[in-house]
Design a protein around this nucleic acid. Structure first.
Lengths: 329, 329
DNA sequence: CTGAAAGCGCTTACAG
DNA sequence: CTGAAAGCGCTTACAG
């Protein structure tokens, strides 16, 4: 590999001049610039990332903490990742993937100065990684909202409002018995922040309107989805509306309702929370709230790279009516 | 951040001694070692990754080239990634995620010495990235098998044998009309290597036995899966066996067959290629060939980090009979 | 407009 | 068993 010294020699200038041609941090005569640029091209020179990081104390690498846990929705995860990776490159950064589920691996990446910033996914209400994250020199952004963010930046969909908005929409339509078909049980068990918040929003709105609600964790499989629907119907026979917050289960819920002879929305209303792409891919789109995962990923990068110093930023849910909720007379 | 110099001062030794205590590359008196270790702990010292990379010409980072393309199976992708990331950490390496779909971004990561090695996913039969990969100083392993690997290491399931094995299993059972429910159309269109190879194996085996076969690309959605089954039944009404190579479509294919009143295996035989976890999650497991994505990911890391210098390594398919293929009398 | 040199934080031959 | 110093490949004050 050619070094900056090789280029300097080939162009008959000093190393500093080559460096400044590259960085544009001082004015260079047209003639010199040309010679340097030619030498760079001829030698196929690229600055050594490690050397540059050492000299500048900047790695141009963002650490992405993405534990691959049971029950997570891979589709949604990958949308977050896509948003983060794309935006990072647009801003001349790379992404270091940290999949280990412990605070130590975060500490390691941060303390060895491998990364300039950290984006953390799959945040729990009382996340054990927070202490480490707080102690780290680099800026951090959480995708999610713990009970106590401890001054860390957070960005997420406002899941509390999602639950609330969905419930209100149904309640306004006269519904009094609502079931939430949620994420797989593991997700709730570890108090993944969005599951907690969503349920809280929904239950609060229901209580305020004196409506009944029930919560049904649901495995991400066809049979699990069907079983969940059955369980709900058994527990709450008079249920008139289903809110589905489980992207994988969603199509299976729909087909199982069909199998049971329950028409949507005549017999039962349906409202979903899922990425727009998932809703669009359904044979028949459903009324729902978009989960803008890719956009959140992009915003996370912007936040952590500093031009957004928003402490806690919660995107407001937008409900799109596609006719799968019925107005009960 | 404390530096090695800080540690040296605190322990009253030279920098080199600290370095050697850390690396274990020379013998240190028990006394000295103790003082150094205490100083390290007290200062919370961690060697600066960039400085180390510069001095050793080793970053301990593996570049993972994983373009997030349309039609890819996110579940399978994430299993590869999990295998790669886990194995990398076991071997004291980190993973840099390169999602951009062009040769330039590979060249950049390699030429700036950001990575020690490259693992490349989603390889096409005639992959345009091969030229760049060939020119790179770092070792490379492809997950997939292009027509001409140009001396690069390759590791993958032997998809040709998968197609062949599945076809033979069915042909031995007396089947003469076989349909392959494949990946989404985009995957085949860009000649993703596994799709090409699978189809080739299947068609060759069918031709050899004078059996009919048809290929049906299939979108990864419920309605797409159903439409594909319908299309196959229309084109080949006498079809007696379906081979499904589309993890997302698989459950929908099964439920659509049920809707159509076709019993498995009495009316139609079913064989799948999917990760074991996906097959296990089905309400009723199907006869199939396991796609050991996580294992391949791990092997890719071992290969590229050097103890496996296997040029081309194709894992042999194992067919597990779970009773969803019928022996036609 | 350009160059010589210090410094970023490590590792590792070279000496003793 | 240990230390002083060169070197890895950059950037950026300092000088001119």
């Amino acid at each position: 590999m050619a070094t900056i010294e090789d280029v300097a020699k080939a162009a008959n200038v000093s190393m500093s001049t080559v460096s400044y041609v590259l960085s544009g941090k001082r004015t260079i005569s047209a003639d010199t610039r040309l010679r340097v640029e030619q030498a760079i091209r001829k030698l196929g020179y690229r600055p050594h990332a490690g050397a540059r990081a050492l000299a500048m104390s900047k790695t141009h690498i963002i650490g992405l903490v993405a534990p691959l846990r049971a029950g997570v929705d891979v589709n949604v995860i990958l949308q977050f990742v896509a948003g983060i990776a794309t935006r990072a490159r647009e801003r001349d950064h790379d992404v270091l993937l940290l999949t280990q589920d412990d605070a130590d691996s975060i500490a390691r990446a941060a303390q060895t100065s491998m990364v300039d910033a950290l984006v953390v996914m799959d945040v729990e209400s009382d996340d054990p990684r927070l202490e480490t994250l707080e102690s780290v020199r680099q800026p951090v952004v959480l995708i999610g909202l713990p009970h106590d963010p401890r001054g860390l930046s957070c960005i997420d969909l406002d899941f509390e409002k999602v639950g609330q908005r969905a419930a209100e929409h149904l309640i306004e339509g006269g519904h009094r018995r609502i079931a939430l078909i949620g994420a797989p049980e593991e997700v709730r068990k570890r108090h993944t922040s969005y599951a907690d918040r969503m349920l809280h929003g929904l239950s609060t709105a229901c209580r305020a309107a004196d409506a009944e609600w029930t919560y049904q964790p649901t495995p991400s499989s066809g049979s699990g989805a069907a079983a969940s629907v059955d369980a709900v119907l058994k527990r709450m026979p008079e249920v008139t509306a289903l809110m589905v917050h489980n992207e994988v289960a969603l199509p299976h819920v729909i087909s199982h309702l069909q199998t049971l002879g329950l028409r949507v929305p005549e017999d039962i209303s349906l409202i979903a929370l899922a990425p727009g792409s998932v809703i669009d891919a359904l044979a028949r789109p459903v009324t729902g709230i978009d989960l803008p995962a890719e956009r959140i990923g992009r915003l996370a990068v912007d936040t952590v790279l500093g031009d957004d110093d928003a402490e806690v930023r919660l995107l407001q849910p937008v409900l799109t009516d596609r006719g799968t909720t019925r107005h009960l007379t």
